[in-house]
Design a protein around this nucleic acid. Structure first.
Lengths: 156, 156
DNA sequence: ATCAAATAGGTGTATATACATATAATATTA
DNA sequence: TAATATTATATGTATATACACCTATTTGAT
């Protein structure tokens, strides 16, 4: 328990927390940064950013279906990401392609290209392997975190 | 328990998680985004960003002592923030001031101005009030989250 | 004492976030 | 049906993130 308390303190060089709830918010923010940094490090090798990877993952989930920009936005972890511009960069790299929607001319529909599929498979395998060695967590503890975080967010 | 499972699924419109650990990483990333959004919303009223607020808080912790840029960087929640430029904007708003270090001419030391102190007091009070109504969490649950997150990060 | 290495801070560039606005297409409703 | 509101996407601007590189200063080794 003492070691745990030390850790966030070391990370942000501070030990003055108003209370456990305040410390938990800082701990969540710090842990998210830590996770993103680890993943981005791995993605860098493939010229992908964390957000670009998130978009590719979302497209994979429905592949070979095409998905409109709006639907991708809804599924993003960070909602305020500017999806059209992330797509711009993926199009330049030929990992996704844009097309007009046949149903609604306002919509642009996006789908993975073959090289998008390939890069996604390789990176996902790499990231999964990395996560297994870096994020050491029992399934039971993970379930506990899931429960507590969702309790924390309450009704939203 | 069922409600909890639904929540992240709703947030990112997905229910396909490899396992509880994978779900936990997404839950942490999403919850951090959620927390930042709530806080930024409140800070917006004062023309501050989340990161600018973080720098002001760090300066407050040592006030009236001056702190060098490097030390501020070490204490940031998001380590890769570009502190010199965040300070640029705080200087323009006259919330902090720069000075040469008397000990090491490479260093720039930063301190809060009176209006920096004032804005920090007002915003902190606002954010604390907001957190108390938004982040509904028992001290015991918070302690549990702290323990689990630090366990997850392992040895770093 | 001098030179090489390390350190602190700043700057440049690409990408992302946050927010406002613009534009075209669709839906609504008077 | 014509006029209006809404929706989907794109774009513009300020700030932040990520990373490389530059300069001045200090440290350390010989």
């Amino acid at each position: 328990m003492y070691i745990c308390i030390v850790k966030l303190e070391q990370a942000i060089q501070s030990s003055k927390f108003k209370n456990e709830v305040h410390k938990a918010t800082l701990n969540i923010l710090y842990t998210a940064w830590w996770l993103k940094t680890i993943m981005s490090n791995e993605l860098k090798e493939f010229g992908l950013t964390h957000e670009q990877y998130n978009v590719l993952r979302i497209l994979k989930g429905k592949h070979p279906e095409q998905i409109c920009v709006k639907e991708i936005s809804c599924r993003m972890i960070e909602k305020s990401s500017n999806v059209p511009r992330i797509i711009d960069r993926l199009v330049i790299k030929k990992l996704v392609k844009r097309a007009d929607s046949p149903f609604d001319k306002r919509e642009t529909v996006i789908s993975l290209t073959q090289s998008g599929i390939t890069i996604l498979e390789v990176t996902t395998e790499k990231i999964n392997a990395l996560m297994e060695t870096t994020v050491i967590m029992k399934s039971q503890d993970a379930a506990q975190i899931n429960m507590l975080l969702e309790k924390l967010r309450g009704t939203e």
